[in-house]
């Protein structure tokens, strides 16, 4: 453990250029994935919360089940899609950061959609009559509900970010862990473990933990100050 902390501090103190590159790519990939997944999943979650339609229950069960999708399976699915022999092969996206973003979107979209569905459905139960009374249609209610649930939804999105930045199975398969191209924090940790550099692997793990904690802390503080202002 001591060696791991030493390794972590040494890497940070030296501003190791390779580490900086890996951290930057990790954040780029995971934040992009969270952004894209949220842009799709938040309105989707709201729509499932607000409308009754045939197969709605099934869709909710599927979304909930996909929250536990093993990253390796998500990675394999995206790999088969993006492989040259696959349907999207001609795009040449395999072993690129874009492929990693796509895999992470597949992983976290169900999480954000399923959890936001729950949050929005609860709020809709509270707001429904008032909004109807004001003549707001269901479609028109979505922006109001998303905005008013923003604190809970921030937590939902952070859960997605946590999963995206922590997983290794999917990005390893679709990214290939190519040095300088698709090597991120988690794949570096896997590689260093394979090299038997356990202190370095654990040190990288500590840095990853600190990064994720920092993103969460910033989101928490922004949320708290807004909550204090707006109740």
């Amino acid at each position: 453990m001591d060696n791991a902390f030493q390794a972590a501090f040494r890497l940070i103190a030296e501003r190791d250029p390779v580490l900086v590159e890996i951290v930057t790519l990790s954040l780029q990939v995971s934040l992009t994935a969270v952004l894209i997944a949220s842009a799709i999943a938040l309105p989707l979650g709201a729509a499932i919360a607000l409308w009754q339609f045939p197969g709605r229950g099934l869709l909710i069960v599927i979304l909930n089940a996909f929250m536990g999708l093993p990253p390796v399976v998500a990675g394999l699915m995206v790999y088969l899609m993006l492989s040259r022999a696959g349907p999207l092969g001609e795009l040449g996206l395999l072993f690129t950061p874009t492929a990693m973003v796509i895999a992470q979107v597949v992983l976290i979209l169900p999480i954000v959609a399923a959890l936001s569905r729950q949050v929005i459905e609860e709020l809709w139960g509270e707001y429904r009559e008032q909004l109807q009374s004001l003549g707001v249609s269901r479609l028109g209610a979505i922006p109001t509900l998303l905005w008013d649930a923003r604190f809970s939804l921030t937590t939902v999105v952070l859960a997605g970010f946590g999963r995206a930045s922590a997983e290794v199975g999917a990005v390893l398969i679709v990214g290939g862990n190519i040095s300088g191209v698709t090597r991120v924090m988690t794949t570096s940790i896997a590689l260093e473990t394979n090299r038997g550099n356990l202190p370095l692997a654990l040190g990288l793990g500590i840095i990853l933990l600190v990064l994720v904690a920092t993103v969460n802390a910033v989101a928490y503080m922004v949320g708290e100050s807004a909550r204090r202002r707006l109740g």
């Binding site: 780029q28 990939v29 992009t32 795009l91 996206l93 874009t98 796509i102 290939g176």
Partner: peptide
């Protein structure tokens, strides 16, 4: 496809795929 291509451009700008082999 256009979306993927746009994402690809945004993220992979640094790597010139044309000058590399896998």
């Amino acid at each position: 496809r256009a979306l993927f291509a746009a994402i690809a451009l945004a993220i992979t700008g640094a790597v010139q795929a044309g000058d590399s082999i896998t």
